[in-house]
Design a protein around this nucleic acid. Structure first.
Lengths: 134, 134
DNA sequence: TGACAATATGCCAATATTGGCATATATTTG
DNA sequence: CAAATATATGCCAATATTGGCATATTGTCA
């Protein structure tokens, strides 16, 4: 019961909803720096939001060097039920911009791994262009 | 988006979850005094919880004399989707006791209407026995 | 009208949450 | 080892939420 309350509390925040929406819509693992480009808020805000979502058992993590990949924790029927509900329920247009920016950012992956780290504010599109020219 | 956050916030409290669970499981309208017997907390706590749930658009109300009947607001697809999700998701055993006590209390209805009002603490079973003897 | 009953709400102290900055930790690389 | 990078976290003031009591409001009925 406490855990149920904690889960809904974790979902009752705009940033955290925007984050979990990306994972659910794309069904992918993501690292903090990729989320920064999608959500456009400071690194510590992303980390804190992820920490709250992880404490609510929504996420698992996997370390790879200094990168930490977050992914949905699909190990329980409850979570799966919740995620598939949210996939339909979270249809706010605000999320679309996040999804677009995440798509952009993911074009910079190599072998499906994040390789560029934290990009200075506003430089994402510049870097994508650079990559295209190579 | 704000409204979505508000809805999850409304659900992130034990009392409010217990209340909405009763409405969802039973699919019925209920007045405050009936909820008092099911949830066993003070009247003002029930009223405040209902107010928060109503502001999140989860409930409609209907007045009948001094009684106020609350019922789920099923006017939006979003709410319906959420309610049917919750019906499966809220399976904590804590809820069972609430449901039992509500069943008890509802035996005191006449023509499917609440007629007894607020019952002094601990007198519910006594009153049910009395009614059975008549 | 007055007394009573069901429900709602204002107030306040205690507690919890947020947002932002600075800094810590851990890992990689030279 | 030192420098650099990705991520996490401690701290603190501002703000929001809770829990409880007292009281207000609304409607009924004699």
């Amino acid at each position: 019961m406490e855990k149920t309350v904690e889960k809904f509390k974790a979902l009752s925040d705009e940033t955290r909803l925007r984050i979990i929406n990306l994972f659910i819509k794309r069904d992918i693992n993501l690292c903090v720096c990729e989320l920064m480009d999608a959500i456009q808020i400071p690194q510590y805000s992303i980390s804190k939001a992820l920490n709250i979502l992880k404490n609510a058992d929504f996420f698992k993590t996997e370390k790879e060097g200094t990168w930490v990949y977050y992914q949905l924790n699909k190990d329980t029927p409850d979570n799966n039920s919740l995620f598939s509900f949210l996939k339909k329920y979270l249809n706010n247009s605000n999320f679309l911009d996040d999804e677009t920016r995440l798509n952009d950012r993911l074009t910079l992956r190599k072998n499906n791994r994040c390789v560029v780290g934290i990009i200075p504010e506003g430089d994402l599109l510049k870097m994508i262009k650079q990559k295209a020219e190579v």
